[in-house]
């Protein structure tokens, strides 16, 4: 390669990479760095003066009962959504891959629909479902027991509302994870199941001794997805549906961050929350990966 050809090569490489690198630097790298930097400052927003206060924001945070509540809510949602969605998605995926009958394709198409809807749409749909007087849920429940279901406040009751949010998140997520598990299960060779049923193993036993161990790697990967997407989607859903209310009972990590920063203009404090959530999601994913490590079965 002579000097000229070498130069055109580097010019091509530079031109191809530069726009992507510039955009990533402006809209991702710089904002991420400023999250960490701002978390060390006291900054009330409209005033230009930022005061460096070290880790004082984090100290305040550890005593902020509203933040601790948002943390409890987030953890509760992560646990509920992960356990219920995982169980349902695994069972439905196993059924749809294992049992051969008419309409399998149609069920698969239907179960995936919630995943393509905007969170704003899902929040509006569930507001209609949970409406105490004209809502779909209460009107169905009234069929079973007329008086005791009169006007249950699915979104107004402080004890109940977090479970209403969890149900909407699960409704949204089942199809997505089901399709994920289905593609992992489709690669399990059929003769494993055949020899198992010849040995008299029940469907349930086959599920636990063949299906689960052979999809373990996919299940592990999706655990990280559950953590990350529950943190994000609970924020989007809560902001659109309950606004964190009533009385902070559905406040989650990122909705509290957004409120502190955008509504309260406590930017430094808000970004300190962002840092904690960031570290939390990484740590939780790492812990989950470590404790679910098994010897991978081969087939």
């Amino acid at each position: 390669m002579n000097g000229h050809a070498k130069r055109t090569r580097s010019v091509f490489i530079t031109l191809a990479l530069a726009p992507a690198i510039i955009l990533m630097t402006i809209f991702m790298l710089y904002p991420v760095l400023s999250v960490f930097q701002m978390s060390l400052f006291r900054w009330g927003g409209y005033s230009a003066d930022k005061e460096f206060i070290g880790f004082a924001n984090f100290v305040t945070l550890s005593k902020d009962m509203n933040f601790i509540r948002s943390m409890q809510n987030t953890i509760l949602l992560i646990v509920l959504v992960t356990v219920v969605t995982l169980a349902f998605a695994l069972v439905f995926a196993a059924i749809l891959t294992r049992v051969k009958f008419l309409g399998v394709g149609l069920f698969r198409v239907i179960f995936y629909i919630p995943n393509i809807l905007s969170i704003v749409v899902i929040s509006a749909i569930f507001s209609a479902i949970y409406d105490p007087s004209q809502g779909l849920l209460n009107s169905v429940l009234r069929i079973f027991h007329a008086s005791s279901w009169q006007g249950v406040q699915w979104l107004g009751n402080e004890k109940l509302v977090i479970f209403s949010v969890a149900f909407a998140l699960i409704w949204q997520a089942i199809g997505y994870y089901m399709v994920m598990y289905m593609s992992a299960m489709a690669s399990i060779p059929e003769d494993l199941y055949e020899s198992a049923s010849l040995d008299g193993a029940s469907v349930l036993r086959q599920f636990f001794t063949i299906t689960i161990p052979l999809t373990w790697n996919t299940i592990r990967t999706t655990l990280t997805f559950f953590v990350i997407s529950t943190i994000n989607l609970s924020f989007l859903l809560v902001t659109a549906m309950t606004g964190g209310g009533p009385n902070g009972s559905t406040e989650v990590f990122l909705s509290y961050m957004y409120k502190q920063a955008n509504t309260n203009s406590a930017y430094g404090y808000g970004m300190a929350i962002g840092v904690v959530v960031f570290v939390f999601s990484f740590a939780l994913s790492a812990i989950l990966q470590a404790i679910t490590k098994r010897d991978v079965y081969e087939f």
């Binding site: 991702m28 400023s34 930017y267």
Partner: peptide, 17 residues
């Protein structure tokens, strides 16, 4: 590394920028 950054975390700094 960008794969680990969700837009929800950086809405506020982008807004301020």
């Amino acid at each position: 590394l960008g794969l680990f950054i969700n837009a929800n975390y950086i809405v506020v700094p982008i807004f301020l920028m």
